[in-house]
Simulated assay, not measured.
Amino acid sequence: MPDAQSLPGCCLCGAVRFTAQPKHDAMDVCHCISCRRWSGGAWMTVECEPDMAIEEDGALGIYGSSGHAERGFCKTCGTSLFWRMRDGSLLTVAAQAFDDPARFRFASEIFIDHKPPNYSFANPTQKKTSAEIYAEFPDIAG
């Protein structure tokens, strides 16, 4: 059972259930090509404490998507679940995989310069370019 700060969630088929502790009440969106291809759209994510708990990890797949990061997904239904730095310094969990995703306010969009022109969000958000993200996180610059 999750504690008061941890929130439950799962993949589409329920084979991977988790609890994670969000660092704040904000949902962020990544428009980089890797996240768009992996998630089938913009990656809607919530930054969480790195100690995410997976109830049954037999259906959990891990894909090393770069030298610095890996992505977690359900091997049964294919749901994209999380992105994390290999060194454990940063974990982001799919906002829509939480049981109550409406609790997160839409706060920011990153890699805004990678967003294709065929969609836009109406919400006012903070927007950061790839250069701004690489300056903030030099370990992911590639």
Score class of each variant (00 low, 15 high):
62 I>V: 13
63 Y>N: 06
63 Y>L: 10
64 G>S: 15
65 S>H: 07
65 S>K: 09
67 G>N: 08
67 G>S: 06
68 H>A: 14
71 R>N: 07
71 R>K: 15
72 G>I: 01
72 G>S: 13
72 G>L: 02
72 G>T: 03
73 F>E: 08
75 K>A: 10
75 K>F: 04
75 K>M: 09
77 C>G: 02
78 G>L: 07
79 T>D: 01
79 T>F: 04
80 S>W: 07
80 S>N: 11
80 S>F: 03
82 F>T: 04
82 F>K: 12
83 W>H: 13
83 W>L: 14
83 W>I: 01
83 W>V: 00
86 R>K: 14
88 G>P: 11
91 L>S: 13
91 L>R: 12
91 L>Y: 15
92 T>L: 12
92 T>I: 13
94 A>V: 00
95 A>W: 02
97 A>F: 02
97 A>W: 00
98 F>C: 07
102 A>F: 05
104 F>I: 06
104 F>W: 12
105 R>L: 06
105 R>P: 00
106 F>W: 04
107 A>W: 05
108 S>M: 05
109 E>R: 09
110 I>G: 02
110 I>K: 00
110 I>Q: 03
111 F>N: 00
111 F>L: 02
114 H>C: 12
114 H>I: 02
115 K>I: 02
116 P>W: 04
116 P>E: 03
118 N>M: 10
118 N>F: 15
120 S>I: 02
